[in-house]
Design a protein around this nucleic acid. Sequence first.
DNA 1: TCTGCTTACACGTTTGAACCGC
DNA 2: AGCGGTTCAAACGTGTAAGCAG
Length: 751
Amino acid sequence: MLSMEMYPSLTLGPQRIGDCFYRDRPAPAHMPMFPPAACDMAAKALPQRMLPPPPNDPTTKTPKDQVKMELENASLWKQFTTVGTEMIITKKGRRMFPGLRLKLSGLNPSLRYLVLLDIVPLDNSRYRFQGGAWQAVGGAEARLPDRVFIHPDSPATGAHWQSRTISFHHAKLTNNTLDSQGHIILHSLHRYQPRIHVIEARDVLRWGGGQHSFVFPETQFLTVTAYQNNKITELKINSNPFAKGFREDGMNSKKQRDARQKRKICDGTETLDIVNCDPCDSTDLQPQQMTSATDLQALALASLPPMPNPSCGFRPEEAPYQASLIQEQPLDLGQAFIASHMSDIGISMANGMQDMPGSEVANLIEGSDTQAYTSNFPAVQANSSFPLAPLPQSSFLPVPDSSDTSNPQTIDYTPILSSSPTLSSSSNTPLLQQTTFTFPTPPPSNSSSPQPLLSSSPSYHTMPETISPHTPADASFHAPPCQSGLQDQISAHSLLNDQPLQGDSISSASHSPIDQTSAVFIYPNNLPVNPAPVTALSNYNLPLAPSLPCSLPTHGTSFPFPSVSPHMQSFPNMSSNPSHHAFNFQNLSHQTQAFPPSSFPHPSSLPHPHPSFQPSSCLAVPSSFQQSVSSAPSMPPTAYPQNLANPSNSSYPQVDISGIPQFNPAAHYRPEMVRHHPSLLPQLDPSLPSNLPSSNPPQSLYSAFPSYPLRLCQDPHPSLSLPFRHLYRQHQHVHAHPQGSYLDMSTRAVY
DNA sequence: TCTGCTTACACGTTTGAACCGC
DNA sequence: AGCGGTTCAAACGTGTAAGCAG
């Protein structure tokens, strides 16, 4: 999951040593992933330039708790959602329609931000359109490499973002797992949920300080290679200007196409003079239908057909930058660049959460807001033929005024999320749900002040090579003590399997049914669909960097599965012993308990019910959100149809993951290490809990999928500052390297 | 045989270079 | 030479349908 999660800052204080363990784990409960000494050594090996900037920089303070995002074309989305949004995916990449058109507010006008889009699975199911509705028919395909689409304006000031509509209509979806264009790779016939992330970037070299993630439930969709629902087709045609030709009055309408077909049959060739077509269907002959030279002549003689009614909701936003101006040159978004930024982000999140007092959280959770949403939500999903959206449970989602489409609710959940400790301590599901969804307005957050992770360093720009996983620089991090047998296995596994990805992870996960509620999650039912491979190691999508064992522990439970899992594997009975949840996925197990057992009849899920979708899943909180979305599969397939939250009700609050307490600032990542080991990069998904007191483990927010590696897709935008663009030129090792799949920087221009 | 994916196709939209006039 | 407006063709986006593969 894309968790731009945060790599903890580079601060290598005493706590850093402890970070060699899963920091949020009770020490006695688990073994340190890596010997502190080794980690310490690695820390010392870090170049000075990697050290974080001075803390408490007032200039970085951002009213993150006030950051809000609105889905500008929410009404359009809702129209589609009521029918069941389908998105075409093609090998070459297909744009999304409707597109994501957003309005941001609450940003610090003077600070720079990155706006990212990622799309995460809503559940572990594969769907089929049967009987006029979508039904889950099996397990999901292996998780594909996650990619992040960086808005081309990034980084831009808060003033910039707030002064215009932010559109991601240039983002493309593909089902080509080998896509090298930087498109977002998705599986066909799966359900997905787009997420928007706003990340503070003090400058091109320093990300972090604040991250806000927003999820609009009405934007979830099913991927298809061909439209299944005629209603969707009609909606698309009527709404998308590019499809005007297929409208009733268009030249590519059914009527016209039939006429063409008729002529074709009659004449046996399309090149004939239209005049000669009369015998077949003179009445249908329209100038518009002719494309040949002769046709054009005829066209000149005919009256022009009425222009298609341009009344569509689609208003291509004015691209801030002309596409033409941007060369589709490969942009090497250096791993170091990404890694470092991710680290920054992670830090900021951690800080924000850390700052949140438990009492405040509790108050928030138990606030009166809860009732407000709970009482309103029931109206949901009246018309939707869409499978149940895992996100909002009707009884828990706040129901914004459906009539107010122009003002989608934007709720900052920072405080809510930051209340993780409370959540974890409380098994009260309703409370948890409340905290997740009920805040109509963003409560003040103590969260984070921006924390730049990386200090600007000239060398950073000039030494792209050092970023490469293959560079000698890695050597400094090869802390032998950290290298466990498991690591070796992992490495071997990675090497043996050129396919770094998910396939393995998911399938392998299926081997341990017990893990359904844990990070290892694959639904047993998925087994048939996802034949499991082989080794436990295969559970992890991302190949681990053998040379960087120490980086793993720093993530704590919040660490992306790929990294974590391998270590878990090293523990005896890890896969079979439920207790291991407490170890690495304590949060998850806890959350599972908090949630009511899934009603999902799914045989496999019954024994180990995956948490049914809870409002918390709406939490963009990386983990929480993911889990919730991932947990969707736990819902009975039969229950899906018609259960989708009704978009009309929607304006579901967006989730601000920045406030997640799990992301404790205490946890620090070493960007350097990250750079050299792409596979260890944190996922954008902040779901990973981090520094909660060991006594009070964070709620588990793990998704059902092993990992959500961050993949940034963008091209060097002219608007980028020089240094920023420079970063994009860094080498990529992604596809070629078994472990490099983690970073898949786009080499094309995107907007 | 069925389902799903790929590809070619036709049409409309977008984009930007070329052209023209001031 | 510079600027602004218009024209036009290529690129791109779109849904459809045929063909193919499993």
